[in-house]
């Protein structure tokens, strides 16, 4: 979903060809979300099919150059404006926890511990990232990280909580 709209956002800036879009996307997310070329092209095809972009011209190296259409712009605005809900089961660990209870899984404890470890690892990783974003002055990214950290903190609290319940 969001890859599609990210590409629209990048094209809104200026017309680009496929590879440019891939690097553009990666720069946007500070390399935190690698995209493969195939993914870019299937997405572009879909966008073209929905008439959100069009590929009228080719550049010097004869690569397809994509441009955003009026419909594409409208789609982008629409997307930006739409609030994002949160599904209870979006987090896979929730489902895991549910299933583990269902099958009376014995290793729930280690499962939780490992999850905590993972979260901690993410926290350390993200704080380090935050430091770097702060040093390089990328405030938007810093805010994203902060959001993620808050989620992680909440997850951590929840894990501690269910650990106690066991």
């Amino acid at each position: 979903m969001s890859v599609k709209h990210s590409l629209l956002a990048l094209l809104y800036e200026k017309p680009r060809h496929g590879y440019e879009l891939k690097t553009g996307f990666e720069a946007l997310v500070e390399g935190l979300w690698p995209l493969n070329a195939g993914q870019v092209y299937t997405t572009l095809d879909r966008l073209e099919r929905d008439s959100f972009v069009e590929s009228l011209s080719h550049d010097k190296k004869d690569r397809k150059q994509y441009t955003i259409t009026q419909a594409g712009k409208e789609e982008l605005w629409f997307w930006l404006n739409e609030p994002v809900g949160r599904s209870l089961f979006k987090d896979e660990f929730y489902i895991k926890f549910l299933c583990a209870s269902h099958v009376s899984y014995d290793n729930k404890k280690s499962m939780i511990r490992d999850q905590k470890e993972t979260i901690l690892k993410d926290i350390l990783h993200l704080t380090h990232l935050r430091k770097q974003m702060s040093l390089s002055g990328n405030d938007t990214m810093k805010l994203l990280i902060e959001g993620a950290l808050l989620h992680l903190e909440a997850d951590m609290k929840w894990l501690e909580r269910i650990e106690e319940e066991l």
Binding site: L120, I123, L124, L126, T127, H128, K131
Partner: peptide, 8 residues
């Protein structure tokens, strides 16, 4: 005490 600080 804070993991969020330790990452720095």
């Amino acid at each position: 005490h804070d993991m969020f600080a330790a990452g720095y």
